[in-house]
Design a protein around this nucleic acid. Structure first.
Length: 202
DNA sequence: GGCCAGGTCAAAG
DNA sequence: CTTTGACATGGC
């Protein structure tokens, strides 16, 4: 995978946290139009300027600081480049280091590892969980158990992880929108009502 | 105008 | 250890 692509995936993974993708795209194109298209460029971009460029993604001050911190750290620890590092690092090690950066939680790390590093690491997000609940799956209480459930039941293939997740996202969007008026009679209404209700019980 | 969107972290209970 | 609040814009 090319360096610029990995950069974009990592930046996008952070920018998309709790944010609609359309807003992230604007932020990304803002960055690229401004010539901020690599870890080094981003690190050398002054914080206020960086924040302004990604304003549309929300939480922009926080995200600007975290982006800078992330790329500064990875650049220092992996001078060979993000692409090489992602490609050569064992999945487990990669995930652990990604998680060590402030602002990179389990979903963001898995997103980077799967899409940027081609690692066999399924991404759990709001869509995966809601879809899982609707399918009657007992995912458990936390991120790790949902992740384990999907990974246990999917063929161990990166492309499959990639496409299956994309399908869940699409399913979540279409289904949710189109059936909005039906939610009142949906047995799984509890799941839809609050984004967080999945973690409320067993 | 209110609600929510592909989370994460720190502080409080 | 579990729960809650803060972070913030743009689309519907």
């Amino acid at each position: 995978m090319k360096e610029a692509a990995v950069f974009e995936i990592c930046a996008g993974a952070i920018l998309t946290q709790n944010t609609a993708w359309a807003n992230v795209e604007k932020a990304l194109s803002g960055l690229f139009s401004a010539g901020v298209n690599s870890p080094a460029k981003l690190v050398s971009c002054p914080l206020p300027r960086l924040a302004g460029l990604i304003r549309s993604s929300g939480y922009y001050k926080q995200k600007a600081a975290r982006l800078k911190d992330f790329f500064r750290g990875t650049l220092r620890r992996h001078p060979e480049g993000l692409g090489k590092w992602f490609a050569s690092a064992p999945a487990g090690e990669l995930r652990v280091e990604l998680l060590s950066y402030k602002g990179v939680g389990p979903e963001t790390a898995d997103c980077m590892a799967l899409y940027g590093g081609g690692k066999l690491s399924f991404v759990i997000d709001a869509y995966s969980r809601r879809a899982g609940e609707r399918l009657g799956l007992e995912g458990g209480a936390d991120y790790a158990s949902w992740k384990a459930l999907f990974e246990r039941n999917l063929p161990p293939d990166v492309k499959m992880y990639n496409e299956y997740h994309a399908l869940l996202v699409r399913l979540g969007k279409d289904f949710c929108r189109k059936t909005k008026p039906l939610c009142g009679s949906c047995p799984l209404r509890r799941v839809c009502e609050k984004g967080r209700s999945w973690k409320s019980k067993t």
